[in-house]
Simulated assay, not measured.
Amino acid sequence: MSTTTVDLLPCAEPVRFLDEQGALTTPSAEAEARGYALPSEEDLLAVWRQMVIGRRFDAQATALTKQGRLAVYPSSRGQDACQVAPVWALQEQDWFFPTYRDSMALISRGLDPMEVLTLLRGSWHCGYDPVKTHTAPQCTPLATQAVHAAGAGHGLARRGSDGVALCFIGDGATSEGDFHEGLNFAAVFNTPTVFLVQNNKYAISVPLEKQSKAPSLAYKGIGYGVRSEQVDGNDAAAVLAVTRRAYEHASSGEGPFLIEAHTYRLEAHTNADDATRYRQAEEVTQWSGRDPIERLRAYLTGTGALTSEIEEQVAAEAEDFAAGVRERMNLEPEVAPLSLFEHVYAQQTPQLREQADMVRAEMEEVSA
């Protein structure tokens, strides 16, 4: 059966299971028809726990930046559901392609927080092993990871794997050429790639209305023949349900899937940014009331799945996690200046050898 335009269209309204107070809502008829099912309490409790730990990690990393232990840190506070739920649902064979803002997602995937923060500390280009972890290096140039994820998905399919490639993208990145190239390639070659746009309403300081005139960013998939959806990005239950359905779609050979998650960045773009210059405090306050952690907490407390004892245990676990990050980050990193010349070329050029010799000579002179 051929795919029609209607099949590609996202729901008219973002998919939602929980309202802003954490009360269960009835999904739209469109959402029900597409097979989005409310995740189990067990799954949602696991996601809530990881969001609490991720939020505490994010706060700790922000503090370490102010103390000079990190060169820069882009907070993802407020985008917790988008960071945790899609990554938590990945399988071992799947690949993840993050942006520079996705440190919370990386620790949710089980990566060592010290290895995650290596890039932001300025110690190394990437602190973890991409092949071992099935996780690409954090991508700072906007949207280049979209092309990488499309290619990785193509590779997975050619090897006969049922794995998918998950690609995180910001709203600003949807205006970049690599985003469109990635979607087009993924569609033409029917790759098992899921593109998730975290629409936090600002491309640094540029508001969404000055970026795109599309009804929603999810509609950008239609021109490439990519099935698309939009979801309330602060509703962890909805994010988990939609991403799971997208993974099923991609891994079963039905091709790529584009998700737009409507969310908000509560902190500044990075510690070097003054967000008060381009957005009002009232806007931030309004979105603070849509906290994804509190929303899910209210729901799980209402069902009885989340008790005060569990809350205390998770809070203590989060504090222990943050303390471990803090203690390890307070240790001075071991630096190896000559590593600057490694992994540039398979065989060093004469110019690189000359530069390496100069650095080596300077080091010998200092240590003499």
Rank of each mutant, 00 (worst) to 15 (best):
T243H: 07
R244H: 05
R244P: 00
R245L: 06
R245W: 06
R245E: 13
A246Q: 05
E248D: 15
H249D: 04
H249W: 11
A250T: 00
A250H: 01
S251E: 07
S251I: 06
S251N: 06
S251H: 09
S251Q: 14
G253L: 10
E254A: 11
P256R: 10
P256S: 11
F257R: 01
F257E: 00
F257N: 00
L258T: 08
L258S: 04
E260G: 00
E260R: 01
A261Y: 01
H262P: 00
H262R: 11
T263K: 07
Y264S: 09
Y264A: 09
R265N: 07
R265F: 04
L266A: 05
E267L: 06
A268E: 03
A268F: 02
A268Y: 01
A268Q: 03
A268R: 01
A268H: 05
A268M: 04
T270F: 03
N271S: 15
N271H: 14
A272V: 01
D273V: 03
D273L: 03
D274C: 06
A275R: 01
T276A: 08
T276E: 06
R277L: 14
R277M: 09
Y278T: 11
Y278I: 10
Y278P: 05
Q280R: 14
A281G: 05
V284R: 02
V284I: 12
T285A: 15
T285I: 10
T285F: 02
W287E: 13
S288L: 14
G289A: 14
G289T: 09
G289F: 11
R290H: 13
P292Y: 05
I293R: 09
I293G: 10
I293D: 08
E294D: 12
E294W: 04
R295S: 05
R295I: 00
L296G: 02
R297M: 03
Y299T: 07
Y299V: 08
T301M: 10
T303C: 08
T303Y: 08
L306T: 12
L306V: 12
L306I: 12
T307W: 13
T307Y: 12
S308N: 12
S308V: 14
E309D: 15
I310M: 12
I310G: 04
I310A: 12
A315Y: 01
A318D: 02
E319K: 02
D320N: 11
F321P: 03
F321E: 03
A322Q: 06
A323I: 11
A323T: 15
G324Q: 09
R326Q: 15
E327N: 13
R328S: 15
M329W: 04
N330C: 11
